[in-house]
């Protein structure tokens, strides 16, 4: 890397150009405290742009901290203006990836930045590996897709409220749909499997009813649950999941509810369980008794006789 160590007027450094920005960290308080205490340890890397101003290659946070601390000048590593763009990109990535493990958004920014310089998969793979970036073509493609998603969704992925995989599933939807779903997940923080289930339910309801996903999320059913302060996050998630499932599978839900109410009518004790055929498709029911001794076994027998005599069991079996 060819550079000169120079004292540069901070007003000449354009912090708004984020072409080479890799980091997702925006907080600068820790950095300010450190710079105030021991000064600037590693000078930022900049390069002279087309006009008078300098473009930042790395050191966005250090420069912001310096501005906040009231510096007028800062010592910077100034690259030769003839430095090829590909090298500038590599420096930007290396300055981050050689210091710490990049998060998924930083990886996606890096891959996107680097990809524009390579048409050959093989050459890209080599360059990515040299910069500690994922070199696998399939992961590269996913990271590239992630880099094009709306910022709110990228933030949700960064905050781990939307999984990387689910964010890619959301890619095909309208930005308003994405904003609503990521907003929902930001608040409820569901597990990966729940995220997938909710996205599938929303997308299928949307297709069946010709209604936008954002409109479904905005409906009273979901909004009432979201604003209900009497229940916690996981209860809200479960209620929304059940509500959407009922809407997507009305007949199946009705059958499940009917079975539940018949089970209630059977008044089973805590040691007895009656299970329906899976999805009510087969014809075999399972009656499960738990007992520890002969007395308890006798109680099971009594329970069994009660079940047989109860009309609810016939409702179940003849439905």
């Amino acid at each position: 890397m060819d550079f000169n160590l120079e004292k540069i007027d901070l007003a000449l450094i354009d912090l708004s150009i984020s072409t080479f920005r890799i980091t997702t960290h925006t907080g600068i308080n820790d950095l300010k405290a450190s710079m105030a205490d021991v000064g600037l340890l590693v000078p930022p890397l900049i390069v002279k742009g087309a006009g008078l101003k300098y473009t930042v290659i790395s050191g966005f946070r250090r420069l912001s901290a310096a501005v906040d601390l009231g510096y007028r000048y800062i010592e910077a590593r100034v690259l030769d203006p003839g430095t090829p763009m590909i090298n500038r990109a590599k420096f930007a990535i290396a300055e981050n990836s050689f210091q710490r493990q990049l998060n998924v958004i930083e990886q996606s920014r890096s891959v996107q930045l680097l990809s524009s310089f390579f048409s050959s998969e093989k050459k890209f793979t080599r360059a990515a590996a040299d910069l500690f970036l994922p070199a696998n073509p399939s992961i590269r493609q996913k990271l590239l897709r992630l880099s094009t998603l709306p910022e709110c969704l990228q933030n949700s992925v960064l905050n781990k409220t939307v999984s990387f995989i689910v964010s890619l599933e959301l890619e095909k939807y309208e930005p308003t749909d994405i904003i609503r779903v990521s907003g929902l997940f930001d608040m409820l923080k569901p597990s990966l499997s729940k995220q997938r289930e909710i996205v599938t339910l929303l997308s299928e309801i949307s297709l069946i009813e010709n209604i936008a996903i954002s409109d479904i999320v905005e409906e009273e059913m979901i909004q009432n649950i979201m604003t209900n302060d009497a229940i916690d996050r996981s209860q809200k998630m479960e209620k929304i999941r059940i509500g959407l499932k009922q809407r997507r599978f009305p007949e199946i839900t009705r059958a499940e509810q009917k079975f539940k109410s018949s089970i209630k009518a059977l008044k089973l004790d805590g040691n007895t369980r009656l299970l329906p055929p899976k999805s009510f498709e087969g014809t075999t029911y399972f009656l499960n008794f738990s007992f520890r001794n002969a007395d308890e076994l006798k109680k099971c027998q009594v329970m069994m006789n009660k079940i047989i005599k109860n009309p609810a069991i016939h409702d179940i079996l003849n439905s």
Partner: peptide, 8 residues
């Protein structure tokens, strides 16, 4: 997108 279940 009908009401499908996984059959036997």
């Amino acid at each position: 997108y009908g009401e499908f279940i996984s059959g036997l």
